[in-house]
Write a protein that binds this DNA or RNA. Structure first.
Lengths: 207, 207, 207, 207
DNA sequence: CATGAATGAGGTTTCATTCAT
DNA sequence: GATGAATGAAACCTCATTCAT
């Protein structure tokens, strides 16, 4: 499944990219504050720095903005993950680093993660699969890291456990954004990383 | 923080309860399908089986419906949890049962949990705290169970770990609802319960 | 043109009178504050001390309340005028007394006068004539007093001037209510009475 | 106290002026017939010749239309008064002319005057002062004329009497609009002017 | 005779989208 | 390629009135 195209009336590809960047940037700010549905297209245009007419030269519908926003955020998160993760090393240490780095990315992009997290469901049946696919790919990255560790004999997990574990890691990262109302009162980011890593590795039962 | 009151024009308390039940039931169905914002008040009224005028005899604003929906769902989930959970026993077995029961409740109420999960953020600043409070109370129940186990020496966790672990359990239950698009393809409920419980207890690192 | 009947479902005449009194009293308070259109029938019922259902046992439409209000106020103003005015005496003194008394009545009933003044126009084409008729009757009282003075040779006015002068007096009384925002800052009631009487009698041109 | 601004979404000032003119014109017609409260925003838009959406590009609330209507009418009345009145001459003749002209303006604009007269009270507490201020300015114009006459020794009035007299003149003009149901049956405009001027100057008591 | 729950027409307002300039 | 005025469907909400109890 490749990238979903959002048609524009304008031809100049360079310009399209530029305008859409402005658009997404403005939209994230607004969605953060009021959510997708309470944000108007006029506000998006104004925040992006151009007119409502221009906005519609680069999208067909309001929902396209949401898609672009989600798409952009996922791309950025993934890109930053890819830089940090070494899926081949297969050491506990590399797993820990992957988790820590991912949690840090979430922390730095918490607004974006939150927005995306809360608004994906507003995407049309048409656009949703593309975004979910991206999520699966990211989960897949953690799966790879785990697999590496298993292969190296550092940990022992069935395929099923690997997959679930990858989902857990992914969700625990998002948790830091969408449950910050509760977690932030209790932990710093570093504590959160340390605790989650520990629980993940050792479990809770006595040895 | 006690229950937040939604004022009604109608006086008969019995009737209020009955009508609101109809209302919530209808609303959940609609929210499930189209989300809060895409659902109109007229649709809610129709689905509930009465007129738009009558709807507004029992609420002041559309948002009140959302609050009542969230409130009702939380109450039901908690009620069912309370029946099943034994916070005093302090055995690993009782912890497992608590988790399994909670996950089963989430499974049975997956539509409701999903709705609530996705729409809480649409609540006004005014209503949100009441709902978050309820969530914390439920997390607190798992904390108690964990504490019981610690006290009995069955497991060893710091206070901090207990709290985080309770959050994790709670979120992993919700996960079964909000990530069913991915999880359902891989696991049955029973498998999910078994795997999560195992990971939680033993962790992933080799003994 | 006799009194316009507002039909009631209830038979007991005594009761009708009592309920309508309550109704008018409550309504005047509300109209004073928010005007006829912004006042709801429910509010009228509540302020009157009974239920919306009961209200509609004594009127057919909301507008009937307005008619009853106007009717009642006019009757009270006229009644109080009739007590004070001596149309036969024909002295300047009696004219002065009539004016002073009328202005005092307006002052005491300023809320009612204001309400009536501002809301008559909301009466239906059907009810309006009855109320205007009452107004003409009151103007007629001043006309009589003026006529008395003319007949006694105290003042000299043509029939036309008498009529207009009566209107002027009547409106200058209402003025005290509907322009109180301006007049009250400049005059006490006594000053207002004295000045208006003086201007009326002597005019402004040098003798 | 300067002009109260009604915000528009449209930027082109020329266009705003034009559209608001259409709007006010249509609204006066409708208010004349059914009053402010019984006129719908849709009707106003249709009468003005554009869509409901366009209407709301030029106002924020229905009440803004009423404010613009009142504002416009006052401005027009005043403008026409200013053209005619010579406040400096100080002759009885100029006073008579001022009154006659004012009464003629009221006669020509009787619908507008009536509308404004009956609906000002529906203005919000926010907008009312601006309109009352305009009324005071117009009263002030008559005050000036009277003052001129006093200074020239043509008439003799105390300051207090001048002020009241100005109010009387102003109200007697409006009377011709709001009591036309009674006055028109008795007098032509010319008769009304002649009689009121006469009564004003000479009073009613015998010389 | 009194009540108040139910109704739904209709009010005001918003806002995604278009299109002439 | 950019603008922003115009549109009107459709949203939320109110409230006069009815009628079964």
């Amino acid at each position: 499944m490749s990238k979903r195209q959002v048609p524009a009336s304008v031809k100049d590809e360079r310009l399209i990219e530029k305008r859409r960047e402005q658009m997404v940037k403005g939209a994230v700010n607004l969605f953060k504050e009021k959510g997708f549905h309470r944000t108007t297209t006029r506000e998006i245009a104004r925040e992006a720095g151009f007119s409502i007419g221009t906005l519609y030269e680069y999208i067909r519908q309001k929902e396209d903005v949401l898609y672009l926003v989600c798409d952009t955020i996922y791309d950025e998160v993934r890109e930053r993950l890819e830089q940090d993760i070494d899926t081949k090393q297969g050491t506990i240490e590399s797993l820990k680093r992957a988790i820590a780095n991912y949690f840090k990315v979430v922390d730095e992009m918490q607004d974006e993660v939150l927005v995306m997290y809360q608004e994906v469901k507003s995407l049309s049946k048409d656009a949703l699969p593309y975004v979910l696919q991206k999520e699966l790919e990211m989960v897949g990255m953690f799966e790879k890291v785990l697999e590496g560790c298993v292969n190296k004999g550092e940990i022992s997990l069935t395929k099923s456990e690997q997959k679930l574990c990858a989902h857990n890691i992914f969700v625990q990262g998002q948790m830091w954004a969408f449950r910050r109302w509760a977690l932030r009162k209790m932990y710093t980011l570093e504590e959160y990383i340390a605790l989650q890593t520990d629980l993940l590795l050792k479990g809770i039962s006595k040895k």
